[in-house]
Design a protein around this nucleic acid. Sequence first.
DNA 1: CAGTGGTCTAGACCACTTC
DNA 2: AAGTGGTCTAGACCACTGA
Lengths: 257, 257
Amino acid sequence: MGKPKPGSARGEGRADRGLTSLHQRILSDIQGNIMSGRWEPGQRIPVEHELMLQYGCSRMTVNKVLTQLAREGIIERRRKVGSFVCRPQSQSAILPIADIKLEVEALGLPYRFEILQRHKRRATRADRTLLRAEEALPMLELVCRHFAKDEPFCDEYRLINLQAVPGAAAEDFSLISPGAWLLRQVPWNEAENRIRASGAAPDVAARLKIKSGSPCLIVERTTRSMAAAPITFVRLTYPGNLHELVATFTALTSATK
Amino acid sequence: MGKPKPGSARGEGRADRGLTSLHQRILSDIQGNIMSGRWEPGQRIPVEHELMLQYGCSRMTVNKVLTQLAREGIIERRRKVGSFVCRPQSQSAILPIADIKLEVEALGLPYRFEILQRHKRRATRADRTLLRAEEALPMLELVCRHFAKDEPFCDEYRLINLQAVPGAAAEDFSLISPGAWLLRQVPWNEAENRIRASGAAPDVAARLKIKSGSPCLIVERTTRSMAAAPITFVRLTYPGNLHELVATFTALTSATK
DNA sequence: CAGTGGTCTAGACCACTTC
DNA sequence: AAGTGGTCTAGACCACTGA
């Protein structure tokens, strides 16, 4: 029972650590042991009961920590056997997908964009492939050009599924770019991104004022709502040395043994 | 409430939902409300006490769920005020960084690699920039070529900090590629990745058997151990249309209001 | 000062897995 | 059968913060 003096027990704990919660301290301890390599991949870590004694706390407290670590993929838990340090399998980078306006402004340059083409039509077979859709949905096709100062920064080719986002038909995108507008309309979505290098196609090269065939970074993104309807396809073409994607680390792990 | 017969209360809950835990059900309910847009960004969600009554469970149970959602950035919690749906700010893509061997084998082609150059030396100023290091560390410089079947697939230029990974000096990388070897040596690390398109430099073009200046996807990665020592720098050059990076979604959120 | 979340307890029962 | 984790309870005290 909490009877004897739960207060005093917690009081001690607090005094011990001063600032952070007991959770945090246990979590940091274990993470430190793993990240530094003191606990190697595959190694078994103390069971809940041991940690409970070691930190003088209840089982729920250590359980919370271990559950969290398991959710992050740092450890793997197996009933009756114990918890084990996962072995990092591959790495994965987290690539921020900022609005182009923000990308340009991050360079300290003034941003503007213009709509070059706009067509309403039914999805062709090619459109359906790009959108990962089966039906001949009503579509809006846009070609758009983004500038940093007065230089073309990025060429945008976009398809919007008007069935999923009917409002797009009435929006002229004079004040807000299609990408930013869509993000506001459908806040929670998921996307598949494909990144490659390729020579600029003639039409794109003309719009970007570069030579046809010169190296470009191409980002293609197919977006669907969490409810699974395809929303939009976009192909962004950045002139070669003008743009760089920067992503930070993450280690992905695999179950061990 | 739970008082009369906690066991039966849980029994009911279990029967209600059949398979998953109460946690999971509450979590899914709330996530569903948010992702579908029923609960809009910025909106306040029920407080713990309400959810507790709604699901007939203890406060710890709903607290666990809300804490988890807050950790994932789906909601923001503020004392005395309540919990609010976050507003997705930007998106970010998760880019898997697989071993090149796996990339090639995923294409169904046989993989091999060869070491073309290998030099031991002290870090030059240029090396230090790439490695994000200040000192003139002892370094191993490698040039390596990866094949898919008999075609060059990727050119690798690598610097290894021998102070952080002394074992590299004795390893000849005949059986295991430098990248895979390093991942085994320093399992937990963090990295910064830079991705860009560029024309192939003459020496790289020669090694890849492509024309100088033809479009290439370039991935540069600087890796450090969690303990902060720089480990390695690598520049991977993929011939343009030979390679594509694929990343899946994620929505990043920002605090609301 | 009162509402809200943050953290913690001392149990309890159950499920799963290996022995 | 026993060890281990998975989940849950019915409280408790505290800290913060807005009215």
